[in-house]
């Protein structure tokens, strides 16, 4: 990175450190931090959408749909998320390839499962095996987002389901009295009002989501945990210009600090949003705000 970094063995102290922290390998670590942030930014709305769908399904009058919605939330909630991460990704990947295989290669005569091998025709491979590396990476990232969204969507569904029920019944009755159809009442009365009830649960969920990101490395995305382990391990002078001992403790301490800062900032921001949302609401907190102001 810096011009004086050509011979690290002659450097000392801070100059050495500045070179060490800017090697290509460390860039990998910094990129992975960005990847985690991007993943969070994409996963959160997708999980919310999953949650919304799940909660609406669970409220449905048609019992198979309600059953599906409830089953989705309770099964995902009952099982450790790590178990899902370990097998969802392979399952999703093979599922997609199987579907594409049915569409693109209807006249393929070999079996898809040849012993241990999972073989689909070349056109059905996801991504195509001649695709450039970044496509593979993006696809892996996409699978990770989807897995996270499915798991955290179940939690979000639970929160939203509770929030929908927390909206006073009278509000819905009034809407019906005004002649709104069920669908209209749902979208115009229930949904706008439920957020204030949902926010505490959702912000809690956001914190959990942040804290679940180290599990990314189970999904095959090279994340901060991977790099902290790789970079922190003892380095032998034969293979690197920056030999050092076992520094894994320090790398993981840095990770702890990173996460603590991240959750702290989130907490502050979410508190502000909550204060904004409760403003003028007929809830205890809204009442307290009103009293404090007068």
């Amino acid at each position: 990175m810096f011009s004086y970094c050509t011979d690290p063995s002659s450097l000392e102290g801070l100059t050495w450190l500045s070179c060490y922290l800017t090697t290509g390998k460390h860039m990998g670590l910094y990129v992975s931090v960005v990847v985690v942030l991007v993943l969070l930014a994409i996963t959160a709305p997708v999980a919310l959408a999953f949650g919304f769908a799940g909660a609406s399904a669970a409220r449905s009058r048609i019992w198979p749909i309600a059953w599906l919605g409830k089953g989705y939330t309770s099964i995902v909630r009952g099982v450790p998320d790590i178990a899902f991460f370990l097998f969802f990704v392979i399952a999703l990947d093979q599922g997609f390839e199987w579907l594409r295989h049915q569409v693109f290669c209807p006249d393929w005569e070999h079996p898809i499962r040849q012993g241990n091998d999972f073989v689909v025709c070349t056109a059905a491979k996801l991504p195509l095996s001649n695709a450039p590396q970044w496509v593979h990476e993006t696809y892996g990232f996409f699978l990770a987002v989807l897995t996270f969204a499915i798991v955290f969507g179940a939690f979000a569904a639970n929160v939203l389901f509770g929030a929908m029920r927390a909206v006073p019944r009278a509000q819905m009755e009034t809407a019906e009295a005004y002649g709104m159809s069920e669908r209209q009442a749902f979208w115009r009365v229930l949904v706008p009002q439920m957020w204030v009830y949902a926010l505490p649960g959702l912000s809690n969920l956001w914190m959990i989501l942040i804290k679940a990101t180290p599990l990314l490395f189970l999904l095959g995305v090279e994340d901060i945990v991977y790099w902290a382990r790789e970079l922190g391990g003892t380095k032998n002078a034969r293979f690197t210009d920056y030999p050092h001992g076992d520094w894994r403790m320090w790398y993981f301490m840095a990770l702890m600090v990173f996460y603590l800062c991240f959750t702290r900032v989130s907490e502050i921001v979410l508190d502000r949003i909550m204060a904004k949302l409760t403003h003028g609401q007929a809830t205890a907190a809204g009442e307290a705000q009103r009293k404090a102001a007068t």
Binding site: P214, L215, M249, M256, Y259, L260
Partner: peptide, 14 residues
């Protein structure tokens, strides 16, 4: 704050 603010996974490693 320290135990709720950081992932258990990283706590184990550390």
């Amino acid at each position: 704050f320290v135990f709720r603010g950081s992932p258990l996974f990283v706590q184990f490693f550390f």
